[in-house]
Design a protein around this nucleic acid. Structure first.
Length: 295
DNA sequence: GGCTTCGCCCGTCAAGCTCT
DNA sequence: AGAGCTTGACGGGCGAAGCC
């Protein structure tokens, strides 16, 4: 991943560069230097959402500076009171250096923390989207298969062990022209507890233990279209759900990138305004120096 | 307290673009 | 050509702030 940290005022366009590679994340203009420079360590810079996030070595102090570097032939001089900041792995950089172009107001600390919480919550929502889709598919398949079984047997499928089940269900299913693929998920009416566990970020799959009505649900990587009694059940709904899910995630990512881009532009504005002001002041001082003394 | 407005975020649709 | 991706546009939900 390429880092998109601005250095010396040259900004990187997060949309033009980041969107191409797909994994590059833009960062707010903040250059990072390790005090342990001799080791030539490459620090991994990640900017999820709008927050500069660094993945740094666990040891060693890290110095955070503004885009204005010291010892440079620039009209903008760096303040000398740079405070080394020890950064633990995965922490968020908050620039708070006096006289820096980039100032992190104290009030924005809370904002960043809130955004962290919101970002985490949205990631969980995205994860739950997948689980809900999975749940939706399972319920759909389950309902259809149960209906077929009920129509032909007048009862629910019996309680059977999973090892016996494969062949039994196979014959039942094939006799009813129910095409299915590999993988049988042992399913029961206790699936709600499984769902709760899954949506809570816990277990992915829990098999029921058979104290109540149990049945089997065909599950495959590609949920097939079923043919029962000559009626072809299209998987258009499944495709639509998948498309909506992907577009939902794409929209989130698009908005995130746009916000990053806007923040980057705002930062460039701040830098250029500061530089402009400094140049004006330097021009004034030079004019005063060049003016002939009149006294 | 109830209402209106505003800002923000989200999901969805559709059009354009890219890739295979 | 078609599938998939990206993004602008639109509408809805929700919370905060202001007004009565």
């Amino acid at each position: 991943m390429e880092s998109m940290v601005e250095e010396n005022g040259s900004a990187v366009d997060p949309l033009s560069a980041g969107s191409q590679s797909g994994d590059a994340a833009p960062a707010i203009a903040t250059s990072v230097q390790s005090l342990n420079r001799t080791q030539q360590q490459t620090h991994h810079l990640v900017a999820s959402t709008s927050i500069v996030q660094l993945t740094l070595p666990t040891s060693g102090a890290t110095q955070v500076q503004s885009v204005i570097q010291p010892n440079q032939q620039s009209v903008i001089q760096t303040a000398t009171n740079i405070q080394p900041v020890a950064i633990s792995k995965g922490n968020v950089i908050l620039v708070s250096k006096p006289n820096s172009v980039i100032q992190t107001a104290q009030a924005s600390l809370q904002t960043l923390q809130d955004k962290n919480i919101k970002t985490a919550a949205r990631k969980e929502i995205a994860f739950n989207d997948i689980l809900l889709l999975l749940y939706f598919l399972i319920i759909q398949i389950l309902s259809f298969w149960m209906q077929i079984f009920l129509n032909t047997h007048g009862r629910l499928p019996p309680l059977e062990s999973s090892s016996e089940c494969d062949s039994n269900v196979d014959s039942e299913v094939s006799s009813h022209s129910l095409h299915y693929q590999t993988g049988w998920l042992f399913f029961s009416s206790t699936y709600l507890s499984w769902l709760n566990a899954a949506t809570a970020g816990g277990a992915i799959v829990q098999y029921a233990q058979g104290q109540d009505t149990q049945f089997f649900v065909p599950v495959s990587d590609n949920v097939p279209a079923y043919t029962g009694h000559g009626v072809v059940v299209e998987d258009a709904a499944r495709k639509r759900e998948l498309r909506l899910l992907k577009n939902r995630q794409a929209a989130r990512e698009c908005r995130r990138k746009k916000k990053e881009y806007i923040k980057c532009l705002e930062n460039r504005v701040a830098i250029l305004e500061n530089r402009n002001q400094t140049l004006i002041e330097e021009l004034k001082s030079l004019k005063q120096l060049c003016e002939p003394k009149t006294d």
